[in-house]
Design a protein around this nucleic acid. Structure first.
Lengths: 215, 215
DNA sequence: CTTTGTGAAAAACTTCACAGCG
DNA sequence: CGCTGTGAAGTTTTTCACAAAG
């Protein structure tokens, strides 16, 4: 009779899996499905059904024996849990090709991310458009952040300037940094950084290939 | 007196951290440093010094008391361990903007990744160049893979066709898939998939922001 | 009979404590 | 001392076992 379990401490591994659930549920929804089982969801990871059920219980959703989880109900619960319904605002710093690819990425909207502005140092780029936003000079960044609420700073700058730019946005009060530069950033404890480090992908796949050779 | 410890089973978490060590070491090397301590490396993660030393021991490298780890020695050991010295060959499927951003990513070479060819279905793109490679028709993919050894297939196709393309490359014997489409792929157990899923980044950062609001 | 929910057991991962070495 | 290396202890995460419910 108690549908919600706030649960004080959320397992990190669970938190990592939740976005994947959201994506799988979106795909299922598009495919016209309405119910899904923990077993089906577990199949996408190397985990047991039970773990999926524990994860769902952390999210605060309840399924039904025999039928499983209502897809749109669970998807909604995940969205609430993650806060991706609230529409987070974001700015993009560094208007290179990666920025261009990201800004046109249609998944952003679905995840509640709203791109507000793009910044770059190159005078040749200032004034141009990217992903429906104008490109401004990085010099105007402090002013912009003071006027507009910005949730997430997306960094697509060269690795040499990544830490410097990161320090800047942190000093302006931004609490979430999404780093695409191939370098490790250091931030105060109250700021979250997500490193979208391509080296990890290369490394894991390369390791898999090497392991196969041996065995 | 035994410098190497092959160690049968490698902790997954360790495997995830190793690429980050590699990157940090590269940065330190560029900065002209020669030695690094486990304490320094631990500072980039929320982990203890000890864990770093365990990770290094898994890699099979030995440090020196008082001085720490030789940066280029450890970096080399990681490269050997991951197999990124061996130069893995890769092909890119889906010649969109993301592919363009990836193909010009200079970190690939440093990680031993060699892009061999780009494939796309759009006749308007075939024959053009991307990242120093020619763009071929996807129809010619089977033939290409038969002739050339391909380690990694990089998927930058729309999510609707991702699974289909994945099945194709798997059927051609490719054992490592790097998926940039926002969907979950299913593959046989001997094939490794790395999902470079942007939704995870949005979700984790969004959750952090929501958590801050509450507390 | 199938699938969720959950306490208990098992496994994996991290930290502690301290030996060893320069 | 300062820092690595490692067995033991502690914590977190996953799996097992089984009750409950349609």
């Amino acid at each position: 009779m108690v549908p919600k379990k706030p649960k004080a401490t959320i397992p990190v591994q669970t938190l990592r899996r939740i976005p994947f659930y959201h994506q799988i549920l979106s795909d299922l929804e598009s495919a016209g499905e309405t119910y899904v089982s923990s077993h089906y969801l577990a199949g996408f990871f190397k985990i047991d059904d039970t773990q999926v059920r524990k994860d769902v219980s952390v999210i605060g959703y309840q399924g039904r024996p025999k039928t499983g989880y209502r897809i749109n109900g669970l998807k909604q619960a995940i969205a609430d849990f993650l806060g991706i319904n609230v529409e987070n605002t974001a700015i993009l710093i560094g208007a290179g090709r990666l920025a261009s690819a990201l800004s046109e990425y249609d998944g952003f909207a679905e995840l509640g991310l709203r791109l507000k502005a793009v910044f770059d140092n190159d005078p040749g780029k200032i004034g141009l458009k990217m992903g429906g936003c104008s490109i401004f000079s990085t010099d105007s960044l402090p002013e912009f952040v003071k006027e507009q609420a910005v949730g997430i700073a997306i960094l697509t700058v060269p690795k040499e300037s990544a830490q410097k730019v990161c320090d800047l946005v942190v000093s302006l009060g931004i609490k979430a940094v999404w780093n695409f530069a191939p370098t490790q950033l250091t931030v105060p404890p109250d700021v979250a950084v997500r490193d979208e480090n391509l080296a990890v992908g290369v490394a894991l796949l390369s390791h898999h290939l090497k392991k196969m050779e041996v065995s």
